[in-house]
């Protein structure tokens, strides 16, 4: 039990520690693709350290909500990230929540962030919050349709179980799974405020969503929010990896070797996913805000189609 607790703890620490690295990696890939040298891989860690050391500048009208929100957003994201299998399934607390709970935890983080954006009473905070909730309102049903498909295939919504099932011979690829993957990718892009839904690297007022919400944050508060954003990206990629590409995932109790394989494959998958994300973001243009619903609608349709095709595939 102690060992199991230790592994669980390691997992939770790992996600926090690895998240900025992943962000750095994606930035790096994008920079190289744009023929820039780009910041070093560890730049996100440095940014965090610098932000933590600075004093926090808080607007005059800010309430307690503004000050506590960053910590809560971080906590919600972290707990959600800890529930996604990274290198192994069936960790000690893996049954604490399923994919729906993870989505809801992320939703809670977003809820708080949107409120924090509105706390000062500026027009940018409002615009960001309002667009963020609009996007989320479409992404969540799409996510749920994916969950329905997965639950029909794997008979569970528990990510550990799903991953184990997918890794087993029974979990072969199928058309529904491919549709679900496509939907998941779109949802993940939207959830993480990536191109084409949002641009994480811009402060151009008309295009930004996430950045507009956090415009008033500075210092340690901003650090927490940045860290939470990185964590969320890691979480999304981990989830895609463990559901759709469960290779190398440690599914049964294994020794140190098993953990090593699991960790290794996890790192490879993250790197690959990060690189692909970078390529995709470079190759795509940001959409107008009001074209985003169309994109998410596609994800919703894909999810629903996946479920229906599954019925057909079962000959029911």
């Amino acid at each position: 039990m102690t060992a199991a607790l230790l592994v669980q703890g390691a997992d939770m620490a790992l996600v926090v520690l690895a998240a900025p690295l992943l962000t750095g990696w994606v930035r790096r890939v994008k920079a190289r693709l744009q023929r820039r040298r780009g910041p070093p891989l560890l730049q996100p860690y440095r940014d965090l350290r610098r932000l933590l050391g600075k004093e926090a500048v808080i607007a005059d009208g800010a309430s307690w909500l503004f000050r506590t929100a960053p910590y809560l957003v971080f906590a919600f994201t972290w707990v959600a990230a800890a529930l996604v299998p990274t290198f192994a399934t069936g960790l000690y607390f893996s049954w604490t929540g399923d994919l729906i709970a993870i989505t809801a935890l992320l939703g809670a983080a977003r809820f708080l962030l949107a409120l924090a954006g509105m706390d000062i009473g500026t027009s940018f905070g409002g615009i960001g919050a309002s667009r963020e909730v609009m996007i989320a309102s479409l992404a969540e049903p799409a996510m749920l349709m994916i969950v329905v498909t997965l639950a029909l295939i794997a008979g569970s919504t528990q990510l550990s179980t799903v991953a184990a099932f997918m890794a087993s011979p029974a979990g072969g690829p199928g058309v529904s799974l491919i549709l679900a993957l496509a939907a998941f990718l779109i949802v993940a892009l939207a959830e993480n405020a990536r191109i084409p839904v949002d641009n994480p690297a811009t402060h151009l007022e008309l295009t930004m969503v996430h950045e507009a919400m956090v415009l008033e944050y500075s210092g340690r508060h901003l650090a927490m929010i940045e860290l939470a954003a990185s964590l969320k990206l890691l979480l999304s990629l981990s989830a895609i990896a463990c559901i759709f590409f469960p290779f190398g995932l440690l599914t049964a109790a294994g020794g140190a070797g098993g953990y090593a394989v699991g960790l290794g494959s996890y790192a490879v998958k993250l790197a690959a996913a990060g690189a692909l994300l970078g390529v995709f973001e470079t190759a795509t243009a940001k959409m107008r805000v009001f074209r985003v619903p169309g994109l998410l609608g596609v994800a919703l349709m894909l999810g629903l189609l996946g479920t229906l095709l599954l019925y057909a595939g079962r000959g029911l």
Partner: peptide, 14 residues
């Protein structure tokens, strides 16, 4: 381990 310093200022709002 990090800063506790807080400064109140007018809203930034770009």
């Amino acid at each position: 381990f990090a800063s506790r310093a807080v400064r109140r200022a007018p809203a930034w709002d770009c």
